[in-house]
Design a binder for these strands. Structure first.
Lengths: 127, 127
DNA sequence: CTGTCGATTAACCAAGTGGTTAATTGACGA
DNA sequence: TCGTCAATTAACCACTTGGTTAATCGACAG
């Protein structure tokens, strides 16, 4: 389990599992013990432990010992970086939406001419 | 390679690899052939092919055949969902920042009293 | 028809992932 | 001191992942 990945990869990788996302969602409500976190899932305690280790490794949670309980706390900062990375693509998904709308409109008035400005049709070099 | 995962998991999982993120970044500039996409990486063609398959499986790219070239096009829509999911946590990473600032300020004027409103210190039930 | 080029598929491999059960640790309460 | 409870570690398993090389496919140019 020696992970020398960049933090963005660690973050996305940690978020790629539904169980872990659900755990984070639960933690967004309030801190919780490992037992409380695992309770909703039909899964053994060690499995939950491993998920928590992954989340901790990505810096998405912190654990604090309280007697024989481990209190887990959400640390959302790494999500900020992921969010920022995605933000850079906003223009693209909005563009695609625009193009879809445009296409539907065009189709609707049965004006099937001109391919629209769309994505710059890649000019293929054919040697 | 039979994947029956939810699309959010597929998206995050696809984004968890630096090579794939770099490919997406390249595609944000313009469409490109598989060869063009692979050129920056010290990696065999089949390896690139596999990465592209993962991206396609997550709906993050589309491929279109042009003679013997495969033109890859960015499809950013799935990022929108991921972005939205993360957005729900914005409050938390901003809160954490606030708390950090607060902590630093407190420490600075050496006023170590009152624990601050912080995260609601989890009330442990000790039976 | 044949050679070549872009790309994919096939077969393989090492390492990682997500889960299990059994054993271990550490902090109580009786 | 002893039993119990929260949680983790150890050992194991099946499957996936990220990479490799070798072989294949399809579209062209001579």
């Amino acid at each position: 389990m020696a992970n020398t990945q960049d933090s963005l990869s660690l973050t996305f990788s940690a978020l790629a599992d539904p169980t872990r996302r659900a755990i984070l969602t639960r933690l967004a409500r309030s801190d919780a013990t490992v037992g409380e976190l695992g309770e909703p899932f039909d899964m053994s305690a060690p499995a939950i432990s491993k998920h928590l280790r992954v989340l901790e490794g990505a810096g998405l949670i912190a654990r604090e010992v309280d007697a024989r309980w481990r209190i887990c706390r959400l640390r959302a900062e790494p999500m900020h970086d992921a969010h920022d990375w995605l933000e850079a693509y906003r223009r693209h998904w909005e563009d695609n939406l625009d193009r879809l709308v445009e296409f539907v409109e065009q189709t609707h008035r049965a004006d099937a001419k001109k391919p629209g400005k769309g994505a710059p049709r890649v000019p293929r070099k054919k040697p």
